[in-house]
Computed example of a mutant assay.
Amino acid sequence: MGVIELKNVYKDIGEFSLGPINVEIPYGSIVAIVGDNGAGKSTLIKTIQGLAKETSGEVFLFGERRKLDDESWRNRIAYQSQTLKGCDRFTGKDLHQLISHYSMTFNEEAFERYVKDLDIPLNKPFINLSEGVRKKLNLALTFAQNKELFIMDEPTAHLDMMAQRYVMDEIVRLMEADSERTILFASHQLDDIRKLADYILLIRKGNFLGMYEKDELTLMYRRYWLDTEVTSAFPGVVKISQQGREIISNNPQLTEQAFMQKGIHIIQKSNIDLDDILPWLLSGEIKLKDEKQLVNW
């Protein structure tokens, strides 16, 4: 059993429905939750932690069913929300005292390093900080907790380029320090996903598409340029250009066999980067292997 396991989990909020989600997140991995705007990424993060109670299904944390009347499991999780709500009048020093008091694993030395490296003022009220500095403070308070599981919602949003690089480097350092540590993060940032994620958990408009190894996704799709116009669907083909000579397949082996049988010559072929694959998947322009729709462009 993984550090997080969801079994047939649904979450309904008004007219929006997330699920069903069946997934197991392994120990010692970095998993990126990727989805379109409003897909349910933050809802999933909150549901895992019981901040938004699942409508149905089961949530397991650290090998045991999560219980809301016994929240000892929370001591093993560091959660970074998109924003710190209700903290406007608190200074960074106030928030540091509050969180370090309740987090038994809080690393004071690490926090001081983050404050120095990221140039975080601790004496100003939170409301007077810029959006980027608020995020830096939020991250410093999260990283310093030194937990087994980090759950992070858009960790590099609103940060400048130098701070983004620092945060990504720190995530790598935290993983190197503990091989069993797990980081689950939601992000729209392709650079974060490409450089950090071992696995990508895909959600489109509340529908769980699956969790894939990052390298598996890039190998799953291939682009072909052909000597003959293709006008009908071939096995694995999920996207055909208007001219019919450029196609994308999500099952290259099956597609190439079909081309060979039909005497279609492949002029050139190439793998496709995540920068193209993820936007296409989330918009529905291309499909996964279990989605049969063919798209023309």
Rank of each mutant, 00 (worst) to 15 (best):
Thr43Cys: 11
Glu54Asn: 14
Asp12Asn: 14
Asn8Leu: 03
Pro20Ser: 14
Val59Asp: 03
Ile45Cys: 09
Asn8Ile: 06
Glu58His: 12
Leu18Ser: 08
Gln49Asn: 14
Asn37Arg: 07
Ala32Tyr: 03
Thr55Asn: 05
Ile30Phe: 08
Ile33Gln: 09
Ile25Val: 15
Gly57Pro: 14
Ile30Cys: 03
Ile45Asn: 12
Thr47Pro: 00
Leu68Glu: 10
Lys7Ser: 13
Asp69Gln: 15
Ala52Glu: 15
Gly19Asp: 01
Gly63Arg: 09
Val23Arg: 11
Gly38Glu: 01
Gly35Cys: 12
Phe16Ala: 07
Lys46Ile: 09
Gly63Tyr: 05
Gly57Trp: 08
Ile13Gln: 02
Gly28His: 07
Lys53Gly: 02
Gly63His: 03
Ser56Tyr: 09
Lys53Trp: 00
Ile30Met: 12
Gly28Asn: 07
Lys41Cys: 00
Lys11Glu: 08
Thr43Ile: 14
Ala39Tyr: 01
Ile13Cys: 02
Lys53Thr: 00
Lys53Asp: 00
Glu15Thr: 00
Glu15Gly: 02
Thr55His: 00
Gly28Trp: 07
Val9Met: 13
Asp12Thr: 14
Lys41Gly: 01
Phe60Gln: 11
Lys67Ser: 15
Leu6Ser: 10
Thr47Ile: 08
Leu51Ala: 13
Lys11Leu: 01
Leu51Asn: 13
Thr55Cys: 04
Ala39Ile: 03
Asn22Lys: 11
Phe16Pro: 01
Thr43Arg: 11
Val23Gln: 11
Tyr27Gln: 02
Val23Ile: 15
Ser17Trp: 04
Leu44Gln: 07
Ser29Gly: 08
Gly35Asn: 06
Gln49Arg: 12
Gly38Cys: 05
